[in-house]
Simulated scan of single mutants.
Amino acid sequence: MSRNTNTDIWLAGAFAAFSVDLLVYPLDTLKTRIQSPDYTQIYRDASGKAKKTLFRGLYQGIGPIIAITIPSSGAFFTTYEALKYGLNEIVPPNSTLFIPQSAIHALASGGAELVSCAILTPAEVIKQNAQMVDRNSMGAKTSPTMHVLKKFRKQPTQLWRGYSALAARNLPFTALQFPVFEKLKTYFMDRRKQSKGGEPVNGIFERASITAMSASIAGSGSAWITTPIDVVKTRIMLAAAEEGKKPKQEGPVPSWLQGAGGARKSGFEVAKEVLQKEGIRGLFRGAALRAGWTAMGSGLYLGSYEGGRFYLEDSRKAKNEGDPVMEKERDYSKVKVGIGKSRSQGENVKKSAWQDD
């Protein structure tokens, strides 16, 4: 039974987010610039070669993203673990109502992502616009982050204009990534357990390594598939700064998303515009870079989270060793829901693999 508290999970998620942001942020900046509508004009010369400006200021805008990613990551993992545990409590493995574990992981990660995106959206908008600022034209002493924030003084609510776009990208990404990640982690854990003669995998570094490898594989594939949605999200968030400089308009907003060029457009309109002007390659612009940095980032992110979580769990286990209340395990083998045999019971009621920890 896990001995982690919500505080443990929050701290582990925050530590993972901080570590990953520092290491992979430059790759995220490159991805944003490559996906921007002005990429060719700003970062390519007449011969088509990349300008030096493409690789300058790769940490622009990192301040707000670190400040907000820490609580948003903590909220994500706290919600994810709570939903995953809650769904397994409502529908135990030997219930007559059968829900695959992959579906539970997808539902839990989707709910957690909606909570996380609500916290993360303003920082993501500021970050992506700060990544596009040319410091040579505005002076080295001027902060790109403060330069972007000035654009939103008249309409600070524009900082949340990209919530729908961010959620639309992250929901399918997490719905793809986490079921595959959990499946791979279970598979590699079982393989490692067999190689050790049936002994459980208890080492923190070993568990973190297996988690990181599983997350890298699942994350890179999910990132590649969802790149078109990421391109649309990037265009919408970059356009939010231009919209934020304009006086507030009277009357209802005609669309729930804002598109490129400062005009309010739906995500479908932005995607159609990219497809017409740049073709399929435009929708997958930056896919290889995104898959690469997501493989690195997801591995570090979930590996650090898993390592931190189990470190705190081991510390708590050692602290509470000998306490009969804390040592008591809940036995699910005798739980029966419904009348008669369930599809998962067969002749005998057996424990599922996750109950043997």
Rank of each mutant, 00 (worst) to 15 (best):
G292Q: 08
Q355E: 15
S95H: 08
W224Y: 15
D331C: 05
F178M: 13
N88P: 04
S164G: 12
I70Y: 13
Q35W: 14
D314A: 11
L114V: 08
A218K: 01
F268S: 02
T174P: 09
R235V: 02
T157M: 15
R44F: 11
A14N: 04
A82Y: 11
I65S: 08
L58C: 03
T142L: 14
W354K: 07
K151R: 09
K150N: 08
I34E: 10
G61K: 05
A288H: 11
L302S: 00
A215G: 02
G48R: 04
L159Y: 09
A212S: 10
G13F: 00
L11M: 11
P37N: 00
Q60A: 08
I280W: 15
A108Q: 03
P247C: 00
G244L: 08
E269I: 00
S36P: 10
T174K: 13
G198D: 06
F178L: 13
R33K: 06
N94E: 10
K350C: 06
A223Q: 06
A218M: 04
V274K: 01
E278W: 15
R343N: 04
M189Q: 10
R192Q: 10
P228R: 01
T157P: 11
A75V: 04
N170D: 09
S209M: 15
I204M: 03
D8A: 04
Q60E: 12
I34K: 12
D8P: 09
K193Q: 12
S222G: 10
N136L: 14
G111R: 00
E306H: 09
L300K: 02
K336L: 13
V201N: 01
L54H: 03
Q155D: 12
N6E: 12
D45Q: 05
S222H: 05
I204Y: 03
R161H: 14
A46W: 11
P93C: 11
A239T: 07
P26N: 02
D45F: 09
A167I: 05
N6L: 15
L289T: 03
I126F: 09
V20A: 02
F55V: 06
N6S: 13
G61I: 06
S315K: 14
Y301Q: 04
A130M: 08
G251W: 05
I119D: 08
A165W: 14
I210D: 00
G221E: 00
I126C: 04
P228G: 02
W10N: 03
E329W: 15
R309D: 13
K317E: 14
A271P: 06
F76M: 02
G63S: 08
V349I: 07
A240Q: 12
M138H: 15
E347I: 05
A287V: 09
K196L: 15
M146Q: 12
R285D: 01
L27W: 14
V253E: 13
V20N: 03
D38C: 06
K154F: 04
G299P: 07
K127G: 01
G299H: 03
S2Y: 12
S209F: 15
P254Q: 01
A17L: 10
R161G: 09
E273A: 06
A212L: 06
D190E: 14
A271I: 01
L300V: 01
S137K: 15
A215L: 04
S95I: 05
E321L: 14
E278M: 03
G292K: 06
V253D: 14
F76K: 01
N320C: 12
Q128C: 13
Y43F: 10
V24M: 13
Y305Q: 06
